[in-house]
Design a protein around this nucleic acid. Structure first.
Lengths: 257, 257
DNA sequence: CTGCTCAGCTTGTTGGTACAAGCTGATGCA
DNA sequence: TGCATCAGCTTGTACCAACAAGCTGAGCAG
């Protein structure tokens, strides 16, 4: 074990104390000034150590307030149930799940027609630049930004199902609306990726340094072609995707949850 | 649009230039000294801006070398095919996939018996602290650390299938070995989460700041109880999990990939 | 009692300096 | 030729100073 630089020692000590509950979630750390004296280091060195912990997602800092230990209560989302093929329920699952968890859901919504971006066109098997309808959702939980959801529908489908391009909500859910018009979604392809947010994403989700985003791309298929592509952006640290595959009769036994 | 601090301006300009291909992946950025003159800023200010880009995962820095633009070629892993219920193939998929991609797989392996940690016991429905067998894999691609995989088997299962506790590899694959002994895995439950790495994870995967890890937890079930729990940690920026659900006959049409 | 102001705390931003440590290519010795 | 050394580049670590900006509670004015 070679000697660590001082700012890493600061980070290591504080990290351990956070893990041991000396500073529980929500607690404030000592100020930079206090830490300077405790570790006999300059303010810059202390700040270097603290910024390590920030980028690890352990703490946050706010000007005027100090450093606070982050809490890590994850929200579990059952992706394979989220939109059951036999019982489609598009955005409803969000409202239901959040309300069931005793939190307050809230969302803004907009509809837009635009040339389809490269990565969307590829998944919808249409020519890039072809018109597509974007239905965009910005979701909050207890007024905290939670996720953005962008669903693209190809132009040919919108011609057949015009309500998709209308700005209002579709009460029965878009998946059900389409199914009623003979465009049943019989399968989907999910892609899950994680990375650090772009400044734009960081702004929309109001996340600072040290919080990755999780990208969930779902392409829905009818019997003969792709009919929609949904890209959902989550705070990576607060969300977890679950999939149930195969026979899981043994899972629910002996345990309620 | 209010005035941004200078270090953010530095980051914004460089971020845009990276996006526009002025600095393509693999290219070196100008040195801190050059950037000081270009932006008429102190070294600290330039370093602040650069560290922003590092924490966004856009660039890396190495002492003596400089700052380099990261490439992010993602490796796509089909999780729903990875271990087909009808054709179990445990770790083989890794070797196959990597070799098919023209890369060189390599792994270290160890077997250990230990008291089961809380989160494992919960998933395996055993009492925390009960003995469990851990089969641990550290995987590399072209000698670059790629993932760690820890699979836990409950003690009762190991009693019935002793080869699990032996240090050697199981040629036919553990899933197939168990199936041959009447313990067929008929379903699994997947959990996918993302967060910043712990120092330990950062060490094992050799990742620096700005790279999240993706955690993939798969609990496998026989007809009547859980039989294994696998926790895989990936570099989040280089991996993508895919799931195919339902009828996707329309997906493979008209396109080879 | 209510509401405003402000002192005094916090972190944020920017400048400076000095030396350590890692990498590379040129130089020069054997 | 081949190898070792070193100058000169790079980033890493550590210190100092000063002021800006955000938050909170004490205390004063009404």
């Amino acid at each position: 074990m070679t000697k660590q630089p001082k700012y890493r020692q600061v980070a290591d000590v504080l990290r351990r104390e956070i893990a041991n509950g000396v500073f529980p979630p929500g607690a404030r750390l000592p100020s930079e000034n206090d830490l300077q004296q405790r570790f006999d280091a300059s303010r810059n060195t202390v700040r270097n150590g603290l910024s390590l912990l920030v980028s690890e997602g352990l703490i946050t800092s706010s000007q005027g307030l100090g450093y606070e230990v982050r809490s890590h209560e994850v929200f579990k989302l059952n992706a394979s149930k989220f939109e059951n093929l036999n019982f489609p329920q598009n955005g409803d699952a969000y409202n239901t799940d959040v309300t069931n968890a005793g939190r307050r859901p809230h969302q803004t919504f907009r509809v837009e027609m635009l040339p389809s971006p490269e990565e969307i066109a590829e998944r919808l098997k249409i020519t890039p630049g072809t018109k597509a309808v974007l239905r965009f959702c910005h979701r909050y939980v207890d007024d905290v930004p939670w996720s953005t959801q962008a669903t693209y529908y190809p132009a040919w489908l919108v011609d057949e199902s015009p309500r998709l391009a209308e700005p209002g909500d579709i009460e029965e859910g878009t998946t059900r609306y389409l199914a009623a018009r003979g465009l049943e979604q019989v399968g989907y392809f999910d892609e899950i990726a994680a990375r650090m947010p772009t400044p734009e994403e960081a702004r929309l989700l109001e996340i600072g340094a040290g919080v990755p985003v999780m990208l969930w791309t779902r392409t829905g298929y009818s019997t003969d072609r792709p009919i929609r592509c949904t890209i959902t952006t989550f705070r990576g640290d607060l969300n977890q995707m679950n999939y149930e595959i195969g026979d899981l009769a043994a899972r629910s036994e002996n345990e309620p949850q």
